[in-house]
Each structure stands twice: as structure tokens, then as C-alpha cells.
Write a protein that binds this DNA or RNA. Structure first.
Lengths: 339, 339
DNA sequence: TATTGGCACTCAGGTAGTAAGAGTGCTAAA
DNA sequence: TTTAGCACTCTTACTACCTGAGTGCCAATA
């Protein structure tokens, strides 16, 4: 396979290129690193790396730049990631302290992550998938509407307005609420559909139509747990690193604006090395992200992963620092949710 | 003052510049418009406009470009705005049809507006300020927490989790809920604070601490009606028109990412001509937006303005079309909320 | 007084040509 | 396997030059 020193050379190239943004040549390499061999030898190694498509020359007489494949190998051989500086750990503590509300916690988290990494950060809202129902509330909200609130045991609250078409009978709504809670409290979302049926059957005909509307809506809302949500922060960081996106940043902006794209993307990503998952450049199935890298990690509640968070940036990013930042923030969020 | 023909020339310059993005010179001006005078005359007019700082020459031997002040005069003298094309009106109809839920309606609206204008669109959530309480709900959500839901008569729903510190006494929560609704239903938010006091006083001491927490939270939530919210769409449109932002788009991205900035901005803007409000370039108090124009219009429910929507784009934008688009979308949204 | 044609002047942008520098690939020797 | 040497390539920067668009001004005109 590829000899050790060549891999060292690759690592040096990636590091220098990330630091300088200039294609790196054999001479500057021997200057800045102590390989103990001459530039000519490095050149031979570089020729090898180029054969393997790990690096690439923008033009004949220029230095080399890592390819997606090169970054990939670099990251895979990264046996330890740069630990966070104390200042960064402090920042995390300060940022995360004292927020009870889920919305606020996630909002803080995403801003924190974007500040730590100087990239676009994203946090996915907890999935309802594995959760169960804690409570269902029906609230008359207008003449002909009721508000359906669904609270799950992972703290997520979904609400939806149901249009009944007829005036709300408050007594009946209260009755239905009691029945629903009796039947569904503690039931996993996946089993809600079957438990709903007997309720619908046991109602007086005069209210059947209204009940059906509400129950359908409830089912929909349970099903629509795929209507997941992602919040973003630090979009401006993209523009600041525009030179790193050949062409334009606008495909990237489009991609991250489309929640569907992002959700699909991160749903495909499973934790690999270092507890994070990484897609570099064209490894992203989505065309618009072919110059971007996506880095995600799961976060947990009650011992099981409930959603993901991560960053998006140019392929030329500091993988080592970003991996530790993402990992650390995921850990802190897990901890914060534990309370 | 400035003679009529000179104003015509200004209008022509703005139009041509918006269309071509090239500084426009006297010769091309007489070619493309029929002024009935020669290029030399136009040049005299242009000299006048330049004295008035309505146009500006990027360099000595170039054509002219409108200044912020020039755009401003152009817009102020715009006696009628370009009506929407049929296709656009159709698009609005199609887009807006059939959405009961406030979140969804606003989400659709903002995307629609961004597509119509090819700019960044924003929609502010209805303000609680002028609303009154329709219903308050308290829902036990976990061992020591209750969910406080506040429904206002403009259809907005706010929720917040209250940490009690002690186990929830369901009976007491139900009692408190009943009391709150009896005392507060129909009360304008501005008067909630004073009406809360007697409730707190009339409770048994053993529950006073819990009640106080909940009532404080309710007050906070009412007060925090300034914790307003804006949703955005079409951020990628900024990147597509990057050439129109000298320097970089990143200050603009930063500005629109900061909800606080946006909220402050639009709160300062009151409807002027054509039912919309416009800030051109440096008219924006916020530094980062000095190359951008902000265009907003209010939308209504039950006859009074409840919030605003609008677009943000480069100063070199098609004001006429965008004004009609913003106005039309605001009208349709008002209509949609009427149902 | 307003308009016009004429004309000299300015300046950005394009085209060449040149020089410098960085970096490579190859070869032959250690 | 490593190294020094060297010819070669290609980008970048610099210079000079030209062209064309566009202006500003002036004197003549309606």
C-alpha cells in the first residue's frame, strides 16, 4: 500500500493547505516539517499520492491540493482529534447554563456550535419516532376550531389547529380529551394508530363527525413525526469563506434552506469514527453540496439517540477542531437534556 | 427646482441601470428613450442631477449610476407601480389556497414572496401587542413541570414550560386554570398584569409558591410579546445577486440572521406611499445594510395591522415590481387570515 | 435662454510582450 | 532509495499601448 512517509506527506499537505489556502509545494513542505529527506524525495512521494488521486495539481507548475479522497484518508487516519481549548470549554459551559425550555436550549446550542466552529451549524429537533405520548390536550381556540396539543415524553410539543366546520361543543371536547388521555397516555407513537380505533367506535353518532376530524388530525400529527425540523445558525460564515467555494455559495445556501434536503442528508449519516459522521465534498449525494463537507453527531436523551446536530462548511475546513467541537457540543446537549 | 425633463432623465437612468447593471451614458439614453433632444442636452441635465447628488459617476469617463438619494426620488415620484402579471396573480392564488394553520400560512407566504420577487423575503409573526387572551391552558407535562399555553384572539399560540421544583398537584393546576380563564379571557394583553394580582392574592398559602411561579411565567410571556419572530426565505437569492453588493454579502447575511436587528428595523418603518415602507441603502440605520434596500408592508386581521412582511435586496432592485408584489402578498395574507 | 454639434480630454479595460518565481518531472549519480 | 541538478511549464505581475465610451466645455444656433 501507500508507504508511511507518503501518508505523513499527505497529512502535512492537508494541514498546510488548510492553514494557508495556497497549494502547497515540495519545497515549502520540507521547510515547515522535518521529514529528514530532501524536496526531491518528497516530490516522489507526491507523485505517488497524485497517482492515488489523493492530491491534485490545479495546474502544471503549482503546488498540490488535497482531493476529497485525500481529505477522507486524512480524516480516517486521524487517530486523535485536537482537544478543545479551555476558553472553548468555558464558552460551552457559559452558553449552556440555565435554560429550561427545549426551544431555547436548542437555539443556544446551534449558535454556540456556529461560534465555536465558524461554520454553519445545525441542530435537529428531537425525533418523535421512538417517543411515547405523555399527554394530549384539546383546547377550543375559536368558534369552530380546536387546538390539538401533543406532548411527548422527550419534551417535544406539537400543536395543530383543527377546523371542525361546526361550532365547538365544549362538553364533548372535554369528554374526548379525557378519553384520549386515558387510552393513549404512555403509548409509543408507533402504536397510537391502532389504539385510536376503539375510541372512535365508542362515541355517540351525533358527535362522530367532529370526533373523526380530531382523531384523523391526531393520527396525521403522529405520522408526521417525519415533519422534522432543523434550526440553523451562522449562515454568514459561508459568505466569509466564499473563496473556498468555487463558483458560488448559492447552491449551498439553497441546500441548507431546504429542510427536506438537510433532513434526508443527515438521516443517511450514521456515526462512524470518533462518534461523528462525515461527508466530504462529492461524498454528499446532493449535488449542491459537492464543495461542502457535512459533519454530524447524534445527541441523546435517556440513553438513546434522539436527533443530530452538526456543521456544514467548505471541504477545506479544519476537520480535527470541528470534529471535537461537534462532539463536545453533542455531549453537552445530551447532558443538558438529562436534567 | 429640478425641471421635469431632468426627472425624466433620472427615471430613465434608474430603469436602464436596473435592467442592465451597466452605468448608463448620455448616448445610450437618447437611443433607448425618445426625449426629442440631443445627447448634449441630456448631458446638461445629467450634470444637474449630479450636482443634486441624485446620480454618481463611478469614474470620470463612465456612465452614471443612481445614488440612494436618486433611487429615493425615483420611488417617491413613482405614481403608479407595475401591476402584477396574470401568471403572478395565479401563483399567489395557487400558493395560498387551503392552509388552515397559522404556521403553515406564514411559511407559504414567505416562500411565495421570495419567489415572486427573487429577493430575500421575510414575514413577521403577528404581534401579541394589540391582541387579547382567548384561552389559557395549563398542562402537566412532567413530574415537576407544567406547560403553559397562551392562545390569543389573533390565532397565535405561545407555549412555555414552567419548572415548578416540586411535584405537580393536578387538582390545583386545574383549579388555577379555571380561575385564570375566568379572570383573563377576553382581556387585552396590555391589561393582563393588573388582573393577575388579585388571583395571586386569593390562593391558599400552601400553593402560593407554585402559583407564583406560574403567574410570573404568564406575565413574562405576555410581556415577552416583544419576543417577536420573523421567518425568512430565499436567502440564496442574495448570493445570486452578489455583484450588487460591493464588498461582500456577509454583513447582509449577518443582519438578517439577527432577528433582533430585523425586528428593530421593521418596527421603525411605518407605511408611507403606496401602502408600503421603504428604506434605501444608507437610509437603513443598520450599517450592514448600507447596500441593501428593505421594503415592508403591514398585513391585517380584523381591520387592524398585526404584523409586517417584506423583502430585502440590493439597492439596485426593481422597486416598482417589488412594491406591487409585497403589497399584493400582504393583501392576500390579510384575506387568508380573514377566514 | 435653451439647445446643439464639435472637439479635446480622461480613464477603464483589453491585448501583448516580458520578466520573475514557484514548482514540477526527469535523469544520472551516490 | 535518495539526492542534486537542470530544463521545462505555467501562473502572476508588470509594463506599455491602444481603443472606445463617455464626459465637459465652448461657441454657434434657434
Amino acid at each position: 500500500m501507500i508507504p508511511d512517509r507518503s501518508l505523513e506527506v499527505l497529512r502535512a499537505i492537508v494541514q498546510d493547505y488548510i492553514a494557508s489556502k495556497e497549494p502547497v509545494g515540495s519545497k515549502s513542505l520540507v521547510e515547515r516539517h522535518s521529514f529528514g529527506v530532501s524536496a526531491a524525495t518528497i516530490r516522489n512521494d507526491m507523485a505517488l499520492l497524485e497517482d492515488e488521486e489523493l492530491i491534485h495539481a490545479p495546474h502544471t507548475s503549482a503546488g498540490r491540493v488535497p482531493t476529497d479522497k485525500g481529505y477522507r484518508l486524512f480524516v480516517d487516519r486521524l487517530d486523535e482529534v485536537k482537544p478543545l481549548a479551555k476558553a472553548e470549554r468555558d464558552a460551552i459551559e457559559t452558553f449552556m447554563v440555565g435554560s429550561a425550555d427545549l426551544d431555547e436550549t436548542l437555539g443556544r446550542t446551534v449558535r454556540l456550535l456556529s461560534q465555536l466552529t465558524n461554520q454553519v451549524a445545525m441542530v435537529q429537533y428531537p425525533t418523535l419516532g421512538k417517543a411515547s405520548i405523555r399527554h394530549i390536550e384539546l383546547i377550543p381556540a375559536a368558534d369552530t376550531r380546536v387546538l390539538l396539543v401533543l406532548i411527548t415524553d422527550n419534551g417535544r410539543i406539537q400543536q395543530h389547529v383543527v377546523e371542525l366546520g361546526v361550532a365547538v361543543d365544549e362538553g364533548f371536547v372535554a369528554e374526548l380529551r379525557a378519553k384520549l388521555n386515558a387510552a393513549l397516555a404512555g403509548v409509543p407513537l408507533s402504536e397510537v394508530a391502532e389504539k385510536i380505533k376503539p375510541i372512535a367506535a365508542g362515541l355517540r353518532a351525533e358527535n362522530a363527525k367532529v370526533a373523526k376530524l380530531i382523531l384523523n388530525n391526531l393520527s396525521e400529527q403522529v405520522d408526521a413525526n417525519r415533519q422534522e425540523k432543523i434550526i440553523l445558525a451562522g449562515t454568514a460564515n459561508l459568505a466569509k469563506r466564499e473563496e473556498d467555494f468555487p463558483g458560488s455559495i448559492s447552491p449551498v445556501l439553497e441546500a441548507i434552506e431546504e429542510q427536506v434536503v438537510l433532513l434526508k442528508l443527515i438521516s443517511e449519516m450514521q456515526a462512524e469514527q470518533h462518534g461523528v459522521s462525515l461527508r466530504i465534498g462529492r461524498e454528499n449525494s446532493f449535488e449542491g453540496l459537492s464543495n461542502a463537507s457535512v459533519l454530524v453527531s447524534g445527541y441523546e436523551n435517556q440513553g438513546s439517540e434522539i436527533a443530530k446536530l452538526g456543521v456544514i462548511g467548505p471541504t477545506r475546513m479544519d476537520y480535527s477542531s470541528n470534529i471535537s467541537a461537534v462532539r463536545a457540543v453533542a455531549r453537552y446537549l445530551t447532558k443538558a437534556l438529562g436534567n
